[in-house]
Design a protein around this nucleic acid. Structure first.
Length: 601
RNA sequence: GCGCCCGUAGCUCAGGGGACAGAGCGCCUGACUACGGAUCAGGAGGCCGUGGGUUCAAAUCCUACCGGGCGCACCA
């Protein structure tokens, strides 16, 4: 006789307190197999589960077939606090930020940095060995544009600033205007790009000085947000070390890479996308402007971004028998690729897994990289490449209007555009939020307003699902009340404050039954290890953010209704333990989110 | 044209097969001689874009449509 597939059984936290602590759907799954009503099965199951379980104090069946378990949390409360994970052999390279070094960073760039930073912290937390990369595209069109402005314009700076990246922000917008309108500037752009890639001339030297300065300022900004990098990878070094030549040797043996001799792409080396049968001429639909293939080498012999990215990824996975040269990048343990090398502290690259935090507009380019890896026979690497794709940060109509954008079209949101100089700069945002924090803080001591502002901004960027477009509103981001970073930090400070008051008091006593608010809190605390594991598996920082908020909320509710320092003798030990557990778990979550866990604020 | 993402309270967003759909902001009413008011308690406010389908059960899965965003560059 053939046995049916065993039904999937889930146990999850109950939706409401009167449904016990945990609920199982076991009876629903069994109903189909056993061909009996779910409720009858649940009723039959309840006493058996109760007899078997060491934890459940009662198991009840509820219509239409739920199994509601009530648990004794006392033994759990005496157990260990936060989970520990054994070190894994897996090495993960996380790439994030990767902002063009030609202007100041804006909030959209910050989303990549914050998400990537949290994923790096999260993967480290669950035991992986993590190396964080920031890719510096110092040969691109955007760098060329700002560079042209520096060399060919006597550009006055309307807003005096000590920051070079602020100056470049305006300069870049001005050059972009000229390039769009003037063929002479277009020709100059092409010449600049070529000179940059040749690297044997004054243009390249000035370009390097410019991008170095801008990268330093970006790193300083990120340092204030507690974001650090292990390695800066320069596109110019990928070119100079001949990574592409090596990759091309292998790739040219694949039928995926073809040299076009006719048509629009004559003279280009092209990566064939789509199914081999279905793809060629018509796969892009009727419209000949659309083509699923990707140019890797232009007809003039220069490389596209994707070509260099393919070479970079082969190196990331240790599949290229070449390496960079390295030197330290100005303290704090960050290294950079370089012309002339020093011995690096670790062997960079050689990843088992790669996580790229890049916005969803690059889904296609990332697919091309994955496709090329597979075409080169590195199917395993292609599968170990995770693109964490996230929605862009755009501007709310109110915020866009404040920036001088024409909002008469009545759109729900307006895109930021570096080319037009439209966006909220990271440094400006931090100052604005810092001022709002300063205005609303109740004490002068404790965590600095800068740190609170950093926490507020980080949390704001993390609480949205990755796929959600964040409609950024300055006033909303400035808020320090409600579902915000400061609320989480405040909850931690409160727990710490309570613990200071009860330091030295007894934390053990006879077992007792917890009140509903205490059980709700305990139940949520107990979920932390699985939330951590789930967030890591799904590479999803939002799960951590929603967990943290809920924990702060549950704790606050407990705090309001359950005195700890003035509790009666029977209740006090358990409450002290619960508070201690909250402080430990909150500290753990905040550390993964990259928010400070203040004793005082 | 083809493809991806998103439509949930006035606004910004959670929830992604299970019990009466949640939060923040905004609005209304309350609570500071405080284990820290950056807080809390309560109220008003939803045919979960629309129509079909699958299921014992759909905001959630499938499908078609409507609306919005993005991609399909010899840009990155």
């Amino acid at each position: 006789m053939e046995l049916p597939e065993p039904p999937a059984v889930a146990v999850e936290a109950s939706a409401r307190p009167e449904f016990g602590d945990f609920t199982s759907n076991a009876a629903f799954g069994l109903a189909k197999v056993a061909r009996r009503a779910p409720l009858a099965i649940a009723e039959a199951l309840a006493p058996r589960v109760e007899a078997l379980s060491a934890l459940a104090t009662s198991v009840e069946a509820a219509p239409p077939g739920h199994l509601n378990l009530t648990v004794d949390f006392w033994p759990w409360l005496l157990g260990p606090g936060v989970p520990s994970f054994p070190p894994m052999a897996t090495k993960v390279v996380v790439e994030h930020t990767s902002v063009n070094p030609n202007k100041a960073m804006h909030v959209g760039h910050l989303r990549s940095a914050v998400v990537g930073d949290v994923l790096a912290r999260l993967l480290r937390r669950v035991g992986a060995s993590v190396e964080v990369h920031n890719y510096v595209d110092d040969l691109g069109k955007q760098v060329a544009d700002t560079l042209m402005g520096l060399r060919h314009l006597d550009f006055p700076h309307p807003v005096p600033s000590h920051r070079f990246d602020d100056f470049c922000w305006d300069l870049y917008a001005e050059v972009a205007r000229r390039v769009a309108a003037d063929p002479e500037w277009q020709a100059r752009e092409r010449a600049t790009l070529e000179a940059l890639e040749r690297q044997d001339n004054s243009t390249a030297w000035v370009g390097q000085l410019m991008t170095d300065r801008l990268v330093q300022e970006q790193l300083e900004d990120m340092r204030r947000f507690h974001i650090a990098y292990d390695l800066l990878v320069h596109e110019s070094d990928i070119v100079r070390e001949g990574f592409w030549a090596r990759a091309f040797e292998d790739l040219s043996r694949s039928p995926r890479l073809v040299h076009e001799s006719t048509g629009r792409l004559a003279g280009c080396w092209v990566l064939r996308a789509g199914d081999d049968d279905a793809c060629p001429p018509e796969a892009g639909g009727e419209d000949p402007r659309f083509n699923p293939d990707k140019v890797l080498v232009r007809s003039n012999g220069t490389l596209t971004y994707v070509a260099k990215d393919i070479a970079y990824h082969l190196w990331k996975f240790g599949r290229l028998d070449r390496d960079f040269q390295y030197r330290p990048a100005g303290g704090s343990g960050t290294w950079t690729t370089a012309h002339v090398g020093q011995e690096p502290p670790v062997a960079f690259g050689h990843a088992d897994r790669v996580v790229n935090v890049i916005d969803h507009r690059q889904d296609y380019a990332q697919d091309m990289v994955r496709l090329a890896l597979a075409a080169l026979g590195h199917q395993d690497a292609a599968e170990a490449l995770t693109h964490v794709s996230y929605g862009v940060v755009s501007l709310s109509p109110a915020t866009a209007a404040q920036l001088g954008v024409d909002t008469s079209a009545g759109r729900p949101s307006y895109p930021m555009a570096g080319r037009q100089g439209i966006g909220i700069k990271v440094s400006e945002l931090l100052s604005a939020v810092e001022a709002a924090v300063e205005a609303s803080r109740s004490r002068a001591t404790g965590l600095s307003s800068t740190e609170v502002a950093v926490g507020a901004i980080r949390y704001y960027l993390l609480r949205h699902n990755l796929s959600t477009e964040i409609v950024f509103d300055v006033d909303a981001a400035r808020d320090v009340h409600g579902n915000t970073g400061p609320y989480l930090m405040y909850a931690h400070a409160r727990a710490a404050s309570v613990l200071r008051r009860v330091a030295g008091l007894a934390t053990s006593g006879p077992p007792r039954t917890l009140s509903p608010a205490e059980r709700a809190l305990a139940r949520h605390l107990a979920a932390w290890p699985s939330v951590l594991a789930e967030a890591a598996a799904a590479v999803n920082p939002t799960l951590l953010a929603t967990y943290a908020y809920r924990l702060a909320e549950e704790f606050t509710h407990f705090y309001e209704t359950h005195p700890v320092a003035r509790a009666d003798a029977a209740s006090q030990p358990g409450r002290i333990r619960l508070t201690g557990r909250v402080q430990q778990v909150l500290q753990d979550v905040l550390a993964v989110l990259g928010l400070p866990a203040p004793e005082e604020m």
